[in-house]
């Protein structure tokens, strides 16, 4: 094993283990609120993993967008439904579960067959470019990627209009 047990490796292992556990928790918890909390935790840890990759800008954006906005919305909706009728969210067993688990594991195995051999030939290279610098991110976003940026902004606009429309039908 060329991978040495450095402090960094230990920290990474801790973060990654936490993230993996949280990911399992998302799927395994029967209670949707707990699933959501696991996901929040997972995303929060992912933010730290992004920090470890030296993309600080995205790490903090991850926390702002996912933990701060998206997951709050999720929890809000879950609790709203829970408030409405809590019995609805109970899970029932059916035959797709074992099949799904089997296939999921198969997928993991397939992908691992590509990843595991990579452990053997690890050579670390120094990071040359500052990916996490907000200036660099901004400049790239508004020059090379300005068209996708505009497209995504348009998509967000459509999303806003759509959600307002969905919510507004009640008014009429």
């Amino acid at each position: 094993m060329p991978v040495k047990l450095t402090l960094e490796m230990v920290i990474f292992a801790a973060l990654a283990g936490a993230a993996a556990l949280a990911a399992v928790g998302v799927v395994a918890f029967r209670n949707a609120t707990r699933s959501a909390l696991c996901l929040v935790f997972n995303f929060f840890v992912l933010g730290f993993l992004y920090f470890s990759l030296q993309v600080e800008m995205l790490g903090i954006t991850q926390v702002v967008v996912y933990t701060g906005a998206i997951m709050v919305l999720f929890i809000f909706v879950i609790m709203l439904l829970n408030l409405g009728s809590s019995h609805l969210l109970a899970e029932k067993f059916d035959g797709k579960k074992p099949v799904g688990i089997f296939f999921g594991i198969a997928l993991a195995v397939l992908l691992s067959s590509q990843i595991v051999p990579m452990f053997a030939r690890t050579e670390s290279k120094p990071l040359v470019y500052p990916l996490g610098d907000s200036k660099v991110v901004g400049q790239t976003l508004f020059t090379s990627y300005v068209f996708p940026f505009e497209a995504v902004s348009f998509l967000l606009l459509v999303g806003i209009v759509g959600s307002i429309l969905l919510a507004k039908r009640r008014m009429s």
């Binding site: 993996a20 998302v26 799927v27 997928l107 993991a108 452990f119």
Partner: peptide, 21 residues
């Protein structure tokens, strides 16, 4: 620098498979 790329990819793979399941 002590962490190999494959470690990150492994985590990514694990999260993805979990999501699929």
């Amino acid at each position: 620098n002590g962490v190999p790329l494959s470690a990150y990819l492994g985590l990514s793979m694990f999260m993805f498979s979990t999501g699929v399941i």
